[in-house]
Nucleic acid binder design. Structure first.
Length: 814
DNA sequence: AGCACGCCGACT
DNA sequence: GTCGGCGTGCTC
């Protein structure tokens, strides 16, 4: 047999940045000889795509070798490679596929979600002159330039005539794909010369060349290592010019050195040492440690009351992972990712810690990401998306406050970080620790069934710390007695007491399902959003009326648009209104208000907390955001102004959320030496969520809530999937939803329950109409395929403006 | 998504 | 006749 000589060449399979169902598959491209083996799966590239060969970004997902006889005539070639090394490793590429399957989203969206946003491509089009064009057009449109921006031509309405020139091939359209990620560099210098050679150079200097002499001596001391120019100018007082001169004479070289934008560089982190563990902590630590040693992908549920020292267990578990040469991911909710939190981890692990959260600039996020990728940081602390940290040898994953709904992403891809954490733990054969004082019912139930292993910390770690006393105030009685302010008599008394004693008070206004809107006292007219079926909210700081759904803004009216009455006032309990009421009651007190308005600016959140921590204010008034992780020893009173607004929402998790919030906020009162007090104002004083929160009885709440979930056929007894259609035309959205329900009825077993179709609580948002259906089921092997078919079939209508989304285990049912 | 192609009505 | 409207198919 004649040996056939095979010329090896490569094909790359690429997912392109065109998020549609039809293009949600890998496309094959030729790898040029020049690129050859340098191209690997997980790299970003630009490829020509479609009829016009416009350039789009893509991700290489696999490489195939090809022999001479592979037919490749129809294949195009990769245009540009953006990365020197892959930005997604094999594990994350597999995870992206898993995510696509589980969340019914496009692969490209999943891939992009896993990376810092700077890595997403930005597109620009240019019109380039390639032949003689009429003088007049050249002047008017092109300003005699070779190339002008497509967008500008379009804006000035010259596009039709330019397109005619394109037909005649006198101009071309050039597609540009750019990646925004920029590595920040700093200039440094080093020498490759030996000590002796440097000495010779030094001898050759003129007597007057003092600075050069100094620089050469310094170079000798560096022993070949490099030094930044900045450092040299500061330390030695040598000018940049002298160093440049050295380069010219050839005894040193200047290089660009990569640096990280360190968002925490201004701070000093005091090193902390491991604390002695309580027996309960010790047991929890030993269990996770053993799982690490035995490479078991166990999921632990660490149920620990406030102050029981969960964080110390995390810290020591992470330390063990590091000892084993492995890495760790710690997820915390975005709002808990405070400087104090970061401090605890940086204090223990120093520069090994990378922090990923939304407060960082795009560049800073990218740098933290790169630090992880290059293994300069082995501990990742971050919010939801930190679950995608490019770590290769995970030793442990920890999710703090595991019950937080912010771990579920509310936009596509609608992934839950907890599920992906468990997936990664299986990949790495390492444990996951889910920690909470008030675990989600789902997780607690799984621990009951033995799917997760339950670890309990029900003792406070420090002996002096006692649980605060919680008092429930029945606001129905209060209202009967007085004119109906926000504050009960008891709460006002207690605040006054704290002011007298120079102690601090935290007041929380539960804003779920609440807003301050504008209403006419004469005719009852409420100012609505023109685009959505919801009333506009008053924002005093900007003096505007704003829609929380679509962002629409307008001026505050002085008279009622309907009856012209001047008695148009705001209504409801906004933080601003409460602040005014507070000032009226306590004119001399200092109040810090924390809400979306006062914390909009970068770092404002932190600044306000710092101010309060320095005792520059007596009262901290805020929304949910103050419930978490702030430990101020001088706070001895916590007031919850309206505990139950969330209870009235038509959401089966309403009780759970209320219980969690009250438990959490109660933990903010009182520290070591000063006993704390909590006052909860409510219209439902007998509600079980409030009663169990008063006793800080999680297990009691869990048992009671499970009964209710069982009766209502809700999770964790049932799985849920939510389908939403939306369209500019209400009938189209409704019709499609009804059709989908018909289809589902065909395949669902009688044990499953369909809720809907119903219009969403807010029917119209941004002039689109929303309809939904929820499927509750225990076992439906055919459901996934059916949902996929529904998506597929809807494609025709998607063309006509229909949008369809599938949310597996949704967090919001309203 | 966004481009080409093709089929229709309204113009120079 | 042709310019440009939009509905449809396809993208390695």
């Amino acid at each position: 047999m004649k040996a056939r000589r095979i010329k090896v060449d490569y094909l790359a399979n690429i997912i392109v940045d065109v998020p549609t169902m039809q293009t949600d598959i890998p496309y094959s491209y030729l790898v040029s000889k020049a690129l050859g083996k340098n191209i690997q799966p997980g790299m970003r590239v630009a490829v020509p795509f479609g009829n016009g060969n416009r350039k789009v970004q893509g991700f290489v997902v696999s490489i195939e070798e090809r022999s001479d006889d592979t037919i490749v005539d129809h294949l195009k070639e990769i245009d540009t490679v953006f990365d020197l090394t892959p930005v997604l490793n094999e594990e994350l590429l597999i995870l992206a596929e898993e995510m696509k399957r589980r969340t019914f989203s496009f692969k490209i969206t999943c891939l992009q979600t896993m990376l810092p946003s700077v890595m997403k491509a930005s597109y620009q089009k240019w019109i380039r002159v390639v032949d003689e064009i009429p003088e007049e057009i050249n002047a008017r449109v092109f300003h005699y330039l070779d190339e002008v921006s497509f967008d500008e031509v379009e804006k000035s309405n010259y596009l039709p005539e330019v397109m005619r020139l394109k037909q005649e091939e006198k101009v071309e359209i050039r597609y540009e794909v750019k990646s925004k990620n920029r590595v920040k560099t700093i200039q440094a210098f080093a020498t490759s010369l030996t000590f002796e050679r440097l000495e010779e150079e030094r001898m050759m200097l003129r007597k007057s060349a003092k600075k050069k002499n100094q620089l050469l001596l310094y170079l000798q001391s560096l022993d070949g290592k490099s030094c930044t120019i900045k450092e040299a100018t500061e330390k030695l007082g040598i000018s940049r010019q002298t160093i440049k001169e050295g380069e010219k004479q050839g005894w040193l070289t200047i290089t660009e050195q990569e640096i990280y934008r360190d968002p925490y560089k201004e701070r000093f982190f005091e090193r902390t040492v491991p604390l002695k563990l309580t027996p309960q902590q010790e047991l929890a630590y030993q269990k996770t440690r053993r799982a690490m040693d035995e490479e078991q992908a166990t999921t632990f549920l660490l149920e620990g009351i406030t102050g029981s020292g969960k964080t110390e267990v995390y810290l020591q578990s992470i330390a063990h992972a590091l000892e084993k040469g492995k890495s760790a991911i710690l997820l915390v909710p975005e709002i808990s990712l405070t400087p104090q939190m970061v401090q605890r981890f940086k204090g223990r692990f120093g520069d090994e810690v990378a922090v990923l959260h939304s407060g960082l600039s795009q560049g800073e996020k990218y740098d933290e990401w790169r630090k992880i990728e290059r293994k300069d940081a082995r501990v990742v602390v971050g919010a939801r998306s930190a679950i995608f940290a490019p770590i290769e040898n995970l030793g442990i994953i920890i999710i703090d406050e595991e019950h937080e709904t912010s771990y579920k992403q509310e936009e596509t891809p609608r992934y839950h970080a907890r599920d992906l954490a468990i997936w990664r733990s299986k990949y790495h054969h390492c444990p996951v620790v889910l920690g909470s004082a008030t675990p989600s019912l789902e997780s607690r139930a799984r621990a009951q069934k033995g799917v997760y292993e339950l670890l309990v910390l029900n003792e406070r770690a420090s002996a002096q710390a006692t649980l605060p006393e919680v008092e429930i105030i029945d606001m129905r009685k209060e209202y009967r007695q007085q004119t109906g302010g926000t504050f009960s008599t008891k709460l006002l008394e207690q605040i006054q007491l704290r002011l007298d004693k120079k102690e601090q008070t935290v007041l929380m206004l539960n804003r779920r399902g609440y807003s301050s809107f504008l209403m006419c006292r004469d005719c009852g007219y409420v100012l609505p959003c023109p685009n959505c079926d919801i009333s506009l909210t008053l924002h005093m700081d900007t003096k505007k009326m704003k829609c929380h759904y679509c962002g629409h803004e307008e001026h505050i009216p002085h008279t009622c648009p309907v009856c012209n009455s001047k008695k148009i006032r705001y209504y409801g309990t906004g933080t601003q209104k409460v602040e005014e009421e507070l000032k009226k009651n306590f004119p001399t007190s200092n109040i810090i208000r924390m809400d979306v308005d006062t914390t909009r600016k970068k770092g404002a959140h932190e600044r306000l907390l710092q101010k309060f921590g320095n005792q520059e204010a007596d009262i901290l008034l805020g929304t949910q955001m103050i419930a978490k992780g702030l430990d101020f020893p001088n706070v001895t009173l916590v007031g919850v102004l309206n505990a139950d607004t969330a209870l009235n929402l038509p959401d089966f998790r309403a009780s759970e959320k209320t219980f969690q919030l009250l438990t959490q906020v109660s933990g903010r009162a009182g520290r070591a030496d000063k006993k704390g007090e909590v006052i909860v104002q409510t219209f439902n004083p007998k509600h079980y969520a409030i009663q169990f929160a008063q006793d800080q009885d999680y297990e009691g709440f869990y048992k009671r809530e499970m009964q209710i979930r069982h009766q209502g056929n809700y999770p964790p007894y049932f799985f849920t999937v939510q389908i939403i259609t939306n369209h500019e035309d209400e009938t189209v959205a409704a019709k499609k939803m009804f059709q989908i329900v018909q289809q589902l009825k065909q395949i669902l077993s009688p044990q499953s329950i369909l809720l809907g179709p119903t219009p969403k609580a807010v029917l119209r948002v941004n002039n689109r109409y929303f309809y939904q259906t929820v499927i509750k089921y225990k076992h439906e092997p055919q459901l996934e395929a059916a949902l996929r078919a529904i998506l597929e079939e809807a494609q025709l209508e998607v063309r006509h403006g229909l949008r369809l989304s599938i949310d597996v285990e949704p967090m919001n049912f309203i």
